[in-house]
Amino acid sequence: MTKKSKKIHKESGVSETIGYIILFGIMTTGIALVTLYGYPVLLNEQANANVKNMERNMIALQSDVKSLNFKNVPYRENTLQISGGVFKVEKFSTDTKYFKVINETGNYQLIPAASFPGNEFHPGQLLFISEKGDILVGLQNGAVVKREQGGSTMLSEPRWFIDSSGSDKILVLIFTQIDSDADYAKSGIGILQMSSEQPVEVSYLLSSASPIRIEYHDTESDYFSAWRNYFNTFSATTDSTVTIPSVKKVIMKFYKVKILGL
């Protein structure tokens, strides 16, 4: 008799408080795990998304610069949403990175010293500095370059080309310089206003086909490997200079894009 009643009402070990504590414990552990691991992952993703977003912005800006250069558009503006870092205009006069073009037969400098002192072309850049640290995305000399953890890549190339359809090899180099009257830097939403200025065009018809050397100098070596890899598409090289053999004609156009406001 007593055995039967025990089987039906078996509640001697059940406590509401313990059950509550167990459930609460599981819940708290869950919240703790999400805060500990999930939240940093989310923040990290957010920072990555910001950098990705800025890469896109830079490619959009590159096509704006292309319109200014190649389509004779006098003025362009672009609304930028800059989050997770600072966007700044680095004008050519304060830039330590520069290009040189040299005719190896006789070591002639081909960039005109009248417009560019010291035969050095300083491009300047539109630069995004991520607050995540050590990530730079720049629009430099018509190319979109990205630097991360000491290395760099070119996300979008400038329009340099060799035309070898005829009997002579023609090298066309397009340079773009960034200039501004004031120093601009912005985070948040900004409207970048750009205008184009009269380009300088130089063309050399060499007396005999000569090797042409293009040098990229970068003291901080920010975009060193980006340009080296790009130079490799012309001729094999292991540093940031490239020698293109037997060029008969060199055409260089120097465009200037002026930033009016941000």
């Binding site: 250069n69 190649f70 329009r159 340099w160 035309d163 063309s203 055409i251």
Partner: peptide
């Protein structure tokens, strides 16, 4: 074309052949 569009154009026009060459890098 070179000045305004940064494109190379080469036209050769002989009595038996006409060649038009255009290249803007892309």
């Amino acid at each position: 074309t070179l000045y305004r569009k940064s494109a190379l154009v080469d036209i050769s026009n002989t009595s038996e052949r006409l060649t038009i060459h255009y290249n803007n890098g892309v």
